[in-house]
Design a protein around this nucleic acid. Structure first.
Lengths: 207, 207
DNA sequence: CAGTATGTTCAGTAATTTCTGAAAATTCAA
DNA sequence: TTGAATTTTCAGAAATTACTGAACATACTG
C-alpha cells in the first residue's frame, strides 16, 4: 500500500467504519479507494494499492456490485473490468438508503405485521404486541419519510435539510393559516405513530 | 428458551438484525427481550429465557448500558439488578441516533476535517480532497438536520415526518412569499452541500 | 484453433469474535 | 466481622468470518 497519507487515512478509517456496519473491512477499504480515485480502477490496481489477494478483491467487488455501489465499465483498448463509484455523493446516499431499506427495514416490517396478526393469549403477549405495534408505527413513519424525500431533486432535498427544525415553525404557521382559512383543523394522516400507551402504564407486578 | 411464538420470532429476528449492525446477536436478543417484556428483568430471567451463559448476559447488559439503551433499576425487596428499556419508542430512537453520531459520525467528520487541512501536492490528491470535501458536506448536512429535529417535541417531530416530501411544497411557497415580500431571494446557509464538481469532471486519463 | 489474459470459485487456513465456566470481586445482612 | 447472594472478570474453547492460493472458467487475440 503506497498511497498518499490523506488517502491512506481515509481508506483505513472507512475500513474500520465498514466493519462496524455489516460490511467487512476489506470491502470498506476497496470502496473508500474507489471513492477517492480520479479514474476507474481495475482489480489489479486495487491489489497493488491495498495488498489484498486477488481473489479477495474479486469477492469484494462482487459484494459492492450487489449493493449497487460501484459501476462496472470498460475503458477503450483495455480488456480488464474497471470500477468506479457514482460521482455524486447524494446518489451514493440514495442508493445506500434504498438498499438498506430493502435488506433490513422491509423484512422487519413484514415480520412485525405477521406477528401482529396473531391473537395474543396472555396478558404478557398482549403487552408484547403493543410494543411491537409501537415499533412498527415508528419504523414505518421514519422510512415513509425517507422514501418520500428520496423523490425530491437534490436541490430541494438540500434546502429541506438545511431548514432542519425550523420547518416545524413553518408547519405550525401553515397549520394556523389553514385553520383560519378553512375554519377547521388540519386533517390527520392514516397512521398515527404517537406512542400507544394502552398496555404500557400498568402497575409493575412481581417483586 | 420457552417464549411465546411471537416473542421468540421477534427476538430471533432482532438478533440477526443486530449482527448486521455493530451489535452482536446475543446483545440484540437481550435487547429485544427487554423491549417486549412487561416488567424489568434481571440477569437470571434472561438466562432462563434465552439460554445464554450467565457471564454472557452480564457482558451483554454492560454493553447495552454503554449505549444508554437500558435502565438499571432495583425492585423493592429484591437485591438483584433489573433492567428495562425506555417505554417510549421515540426515546429509544433518539438515544440510538445520539450514540451513533457520537461513535461513528463525529469521528468521521473529525478525520475528514483534519485531512482537508493538508495541502494536496499532486493532482490525484487534489481530486481526493475534493471528494472528501463533498462527503464532509453531505454528512454534516444530514447530521445537522438530525440534530436539529432531535430538539423537537415528539408531537411536532411526528407531524414533520408525516408531511414528508410535501414539506418541499410548503417551503417553495414560503420562499416565493418571502421573495415577494422582501423583494430578494432567500438567504443561503453557511455550507452549501450541493455536489462540488470542481475536480470531478476531468477527462479520464490512463487507458 | 492454441494461447494468453482476465475473472471466479472454493476448500482449507488464518484471524477474529463470541461464548463459557470457574474464580474473583462486590454487596449486603446479620 | 462472616457468609450468602449477586455480579464481574478473564483465560481458553468454540464458532464464525475473512482471506488466500490454486484450480477452474471464460473471453478475447492472432
Amino acid at each position: 500500500m503506497d498511497l498518499p497519507p490523506a488517502t491512506a487515512a481515509f481508506v483505513l478509517h472507512f475500513g474500520e467504519m465498514g466493519s462496524r456496519w455489516g460490511i467487512n473491512r476489506t470491502v470498506g477499504q476497496i470502496y473508500a479507494l474507489l471513492f477517492l480515485s480520479d479514474r476507474p480502477l481495475n482489480a489489479d490496481d486495487i491489489v497493488a494499492s491495498l495488498g489484498f489477494s486477488r481473489s479477495n478483491v474479486s469477492m469484494g467487488l462482487k459484494e459492492l456490485e450487489t449493493w449497487r455501489l460501484v459501476r462496472l465499465q470498460h475503458l477503450p483498448g483495455d480488456r480488464r473490468e474497471h470500477f468506479s463509484t457514482p460521482e455524486d455523493v447524494w446518489q451514493i446516499v440514495r442508493i445506500l438508503a434504498e438498499e438498506r431499506r430493502k435488506r433490513e427495514i422491509d423484512p422487519t416490517l413484514t415480520l412485525l405485521r405477521d406477528v401482529l396478526l396473531q391473537k395474543p393469549s396472555t396478558e404478557a403477549e398482549r403487552h408484547a404486541q403493543g410494543r411491537m405495534h409501537n415499533l412498527h408505527d415508528v419504523i414505518s413513519l421514519l422510512t415513509g419519510w425517507a422514501n418520500d424525500v428520496q423523490g425530491l431533486p437534490d436541490e430541494r432535498l438540500i434546502a429541506l435539510l438545511k431548514m432542519g427544525g425550523r420547518v416545524a415553525k413553518v408547519l405550525e404557521a401553515t397549520d394556523r393559516f389553514q385553520q383560519i382559512v378553512t375554519g377547521k383543523g388540519r386533517r390527520r394522516g392514516k397512521a398515527d405513530a404517537a406512542p400507544r400507551r394502552s398496555a404500557e402504564n400498568e402497575k409493575k407486578k412481581d417483586a
